[in-house]
Amino acid sequence: MNINTVEYFVREVMHSLKRNNWMSVASIGTVAVSLFIFGMFLMLVMNMNKMVDTMESQVQIKVYLEDDFSREDAKDLEKELKQMQGVEKVTFVTKEEAMEKFKERLGDQKTLLDALDETNPLPDSFEVMVLQPEMVKTAAENIEKFEGVDSAKYGQDVMEHLFDITRLIRIFGFALMMVLALATLFIISNTIRLTVFARRKEIAIMKYVGATDWFIRWPFVLEGIVMGFLGSIIASVVLRLTYSGITAKIYDTLAFFPLIPEEPFLTYVTLIVVIGGMIMGAIGSTVSIKRFLKV
């Protein structure tokens, strides 16, 4: 491809975008809207994933020991727990340590504990971390069978609900993103089809004088890419503003909520949206020109 040809392609694209002025603007706008919704879902799903990850990493089993279980026996039990399949880490928490933590958590209200009068109702316990959150349930059940174990607790209900919800959102989000990608493809391909149709005579002449299919195709494919690019840039800008707005709002009210920080997250999202938009523009126009090349 020589420089002369590249120049010709660029000129053709500019010419075509200008000629179909309103059509181009409308398509770029529609592409921007569907890429924006696509991006919103992408960010939602990614944030959900991050939230689940955070929660999953915090999942641990609290193993409370029976009161009369001696510290020596507890050491043996610790060894046994460590040998269990899927167990990552076992920490022994004495009842004194547990009390300290409890006091810390109560903060200003720790005077409440004065009523206990130096007695400590808290048991010795283990904090058991497992490798995968799915193992929590079985691990806890198995641990409860050990001698000296009073009970093994974890956030049963919360975890199971969380899994259900996130699975649903992931599936739904994925399906919706697919639909939106297809819609974008369709919009771009439709616009290019109109341009191609308007220029079918020119295409026929090009074929008669011996232009290769790729030579004919390139300007249209480039036009599709340019439309996808412009649409995705608009979408990205709006996405960035929206996300910044939302994070700011949420940090004000729910500071602990684990949102993904803006950077480099937004850069990734922008890249995905822009590259995705361009790819869909290229595919859309390639599809729509196919029929007109048969001369």
Binding site: M1, N4, V209, I216
Partner: peptide, 9 residues
Amino acid sequence: FAMQVIEAP
């Protein structure tokens, strides 16, 4: 145009 599309110099 006929020369353009066959990429003549």
